[in-house]
């Protein structure tokens, strides 16, 4: 282009201006995303590169549990003991609630909140209790925000939590297999694998799943330090969580926190494969029903009336 000296210098001037514009743009972009500079302090390379739960060997698990305990100690001022409780063979957990005696006192909701290290600010819990008019099973007539003495006349109370379905729609939709059904029937989430798309939350017909919209806040003296990797350890921000039948307790032969807290004896928990269990007796002798049976989710959570 030697025959066009003016054009050539124009091109050069343009190139310089474009370079300047690009530099300015890049600088503006760096400023715009500056809040992200804080991330490396909160997100370790080990956390970023952590493999899926099912791909971890015993060594990996030890390292990870140790790291999670360190992180909890740093962020919450208490060093918990996080364990990985495996499912026990010959076990299929199931739950039943006697709606004739449930009084809607909400002790199960509170117990869940404390046991599972839920965020204090949002008063989170895996259980919601519906106050329903007697003579109706229409949830549209239910109320979850009642604030009066219980039980109210002409009302019955229906606690709803994860139904631990045998055909769980939530695990099907997860694009990264971050949630699955364990051999003992409990649907769990790997909080360190979940990408936070919340498709499972849309898929669940029982409003059983919760998302960590922010980092959970728990005062040091309220942290429950007995924790499980797949259950009640303090969840990271931006992932989904759900009721896990207190597997850190139940897989070691204890009862779920919600059952222990219930003052009415409405809750029955046990191993369906054990013929002598209370839950088997209930299923064999009471007229039980499941929620939204028509959806084909096959819950392991049953309801019954006994008077």
């Amino acid at each position: 282009m030697s025959e066009m000296p003016t054009g050539s210098s124009d091109v050069q001037r343009r190139t310089v201006l474009k370079g300047l514009g690009a530099t300015l743009g890049a600088a503006a972009f760096a400023t715009a995303v500056a809040p992200l500079r804080d991330l490396p302090n909160r997100l370790s390379a080990a956390e970023l590169m952590q493999k899926h739960y099912k791909e971890l060997d015993e060594d990996d698990k030890r390292t990870i549990l140790n790291r999670l305990e360190d992180e909890a100690a740093r962020d919450y001022g208490v060093r918990p003991e996080i364990r990985d409780q495996p499912p026990r063979s010959g076990t299929k957990f199931a739950y039943a609630v006697n709606l004739s005696v449930c009084s809607g006192n909400g002790k199960c909701v509170e117990a869940c909140h404390r046991e599972n290290n839920h965020d204090r600010a949002t008063n989170q819990s895996y259980i919601r209790v519906l106050e329903m008019p007697k003579g109706s099973m229409d949830m549209g007539r239910g109320n979850t925000t009642y604030r009066h003495g219980v039980p109210a006349e002409d009302k019955f109370y229906m606690p709803v939590q994860c139904q631990q379905c045998d055909e769980p729609p939530c695990t099907d939709v997860c694009p990264v297999q971050a949630t699955w059904k364990e051999p003992d029937g409990i649907v769990v989430v790997d909080y360190n694998w979940c990408i936070g798309c919340r498709y499972c939350e849309a898929a669940c017909p029982y409003h059983a799943r919760r998302f960590n919209w922010k980092k959970p806040e728990i005062p040091a003296d309220e942290v429950n330090p007995v924790q499980g990797y797949l259950s009640n350890r303090i969840r990271p921000q931006g992932v989904v969580e759900k009721c896990h039948f207190c597997l850190h307790r139940t897989r070691e032969g204890r009862l779920p926190a919600c059952l222990e807290a219930c003052p009415t004896g409405a809750r029955v928990f046990g191993n369906l494969l054990d013929p002598a269990s209370d839950i088997r007796w209930i299923l064999e002798n009471k007229r039980v029903f499941v929620l939204k049976e028509e959806l084909g989710t096959k819950p392991s959570f049953f309801y019954f009336f006994d008077k």
Binding site: L39, L43, L48, H52, D172, V173, C174, P175, V176, Q177, A178, W193, C194, I195, G196, C197, R198, Y199, F211, N212, P236, Q237, G238, V239, V240
Partner: peptide, 28 residues
Amino acid sequence: VTVDLGRPDRFWHLIPGLGRFNFPISML
């Protein structure tokens, strides 16, 4: 979709071969 993710840092879990791609069960 990316800005809707709670954990965009784990985006790689969605990459077939690298993460765990729940194909063909998940419509996502």
